[in-house]
Design a protein around this nucleic acid. Sequence first.
RNA 1: GGCCCCAUCGUCUAGGCAGGUCUAGGACACCGGGUUUUCAACCCGGCAACAGGGGUUCGAAUCCCCUUGGGGCUACCA
Length: 541
Amino acid sequence: MIVTRFAPSPTGYLHIGGARTALFNWLLARKSGGRFLLRIEDTDLKRNTPTATQQVLADLRWLGIDWDEGPEVGGPNGPYFQSQRLEIYQHYVLKLIEEKKAYYCFDTPEEIERLRREAEAKKQVFLYPRPAHFPEPEEARKAQAQGRPVTVRLAVTETEPIVVQDLLRGDVVFNPAEIGDFVILKSDGFPTYHLAVVVDDELMGVTHVIRGQEHLMNTPNHLLLQRALGFRTPAYLHMSVTVSESGGKLSKRERPEALRKAIQEKKGVDLDALAKAAGLSRQELDLFLAGEKMPDVPAIDAMAAFLGVHLPEINVVDFLKSGYLPETMVNFLALLGWSPAGRQEIMDRQELIEAFDLSRLNKSNSLFDRKKLLAFNTEHIKRVPLKTLVRHFRVFLEATGSPVAAADDAMLEHLIRINEGARTLAQIEEKCRFAFIPDEAVVYDPEAVKKVLQKEGAADILRTIAQRLEQLKEFTAESLEVMLRNLAEETQVGLGKVAQPLRVAITGTTISPPIFDAVNLLGLERTRKRIERAIQLFSHA
RNA sequence: GGCCCCAUCGUCUAGGCAGGUCUAGGACACCGGGUUUUCAACCCGGCAACAGGGGUUCGAAUCCCCUUGGGGCUACCA
C-alpha cells in the first residue's frame, strides 16, 4: 500500500508551494487507495510560532486535503509532532554512536564558521574534519558541563557513488567525497531535519516521498542515514519549483517586499499613521522599510489595507481572502507541473484523483500565473453547486469581516444568483455591499458623480424615477424592469441613461449587480432615501 | 565559486521515453469584432514557440554532446 505524507514546519501560514506539495502527495494516496499522513516538523525552536500549526491545519481543511493520520485525527504511528518524539530520535542517535557510525562534536558556531571560511578561501568544499578517535560519551558529558555545545554528526564513510533513484528525474548520482559529516543532533537536543525525517518516514511506513526540488541535494544524506540505521528507502520524487514573476522561487517574503516597494513608491505616505494602523511602533516600521525586519502577517495586511494596495497572494489564506474558491486552488495547483491525459483542464477534486498519474508530471519549473488563476476561478464559480458556493461565500465574508456576513444563507444564495459571471467571491461582495451598509454611509465615488450624476438631465431622471417608484403597485425586480424600460422609451434615451444615474445614486459607484436586482435588493424605502440624498448632494440646479 | 536540476507560444502545457502522422495542438493572456443597463460573463476571429551550435539518421521538437540561459542547494532551517 502506498503511504505518503506532508510534513510542514509550522513557521506561519501554509503557502502556495507547500499546498502544492501536500496536494500531490494527497492525490497519489487517494488515487492508489493508500494513506496520506500529516506530520508537523517542529524541530526548530527559533522559527516555530505557536499558532502556525492551527493555521496550517485550517488551510489544508479549507482546500479539502484531508489526512488519515496526524494531528487531531491521531493514528497508530503517533505522536505526529516531532517535538514530541525526542526520545525516539535520541534512541537512534545513541545506536549510531555505539556502532561508531556517528560521533560527538564540541565545536562552537564560531569555530565551524572559521573552518568554513578557510575552505571557501581555498575554493574547496567544506568538509567537517572527522577526528581520528570518536569522543566517548563521558567526554560529551564533561563538555556539556563546561558549557560547550554538544552535537552529533554522522560519519560519512561511503566511497561508492550515491545514486538517488528519482521517479521523475531518473538516477541522480552524487559523489560521497563531497558530502561532509553532517549534524544529526543539535546542541539543544533536537534532531536536525535529516535525522527526524528519515526516522519518521521509516517508523510511519512512508513509501513515497514527493517533495520540492530544493530537497534533491538532501536526499543522498537521507540515503546515507537510512543505510546506517538499516532502514528502507522510500521512493522519491522531486517536483519542479514554482517561481514568481520576480524570479526565484515563490516565497513568503514576496508580500512584505511588495508592500515595502509600494510604500516607497507612493509619495507623501503618513508613516506615523501607517505604523499606527499596523500596530507597530514607528521604529519597527522604519526597520521594516530599511529591510531589516519583517512584521507579521496581520500587520502586513493592515498596512496594505491602509494604503489601499493589493499585495500578491502567497499564503493559502491570502487566496481565500481575495475570494478564490478552494476548488480553484486545488485545480490550478495540480496543473502546475502536472497535466491530465485529455483536454479537460477544469476539474474538481474527484476528477483530479481519477486523472492523476505520476508519469504525467513534468520536470521544469513553472511560473504562477494569477491571470489564469482568475479564469479558473470564474469557471469554478459556475461549476460548483450553489449550496457549496454559499458555504464558501460565508467563510469568505467572515474571514474578511464584511458587513454582508449579516445576511442569511437564502440571501447569500440570492446574491450569488444575481451576480452571474462574477470572477471572485470578492467581486460579488463588492457589488452587493452597498445594500448592507447604512444609507448615510454610502460613499460617492467622485469619478462616478462627475461622469453620471452631474450630467445634463440626470437629476431630472432621478426625480422621475422617485415619482414612479411611489406609483408602483408591487415592488419586484420584474415590475421595476417594466417601469424603467418604459421610462427609457418615453424619454427617448437608452436604458443606460436611466439605469446609470440610479445605480450611482444607490450604490455610490458605477459598478453593481443588474440594476433591477440592485434596487430590489435595497428595497423601496431605502432606494427612495438614497435617491433623495443623491439629488440633494449633487444637483446644483 | 562548487554540486545538482531544467529548457516548446508572453504564461501553463500537449507532443519527447517507442524519430516520419507536428506547415507543432489546447488553455490563459493579448489584439480585433459582436452582444450589452454598469462591471463582469458570453460569442466569433487573430497574433504567437521547438534557446543556439554540432552530431546520429533517408528523416530530429523528439536521441547524443557542447554552449547559453533559468532555477535549486551549498546551516546546529526545514
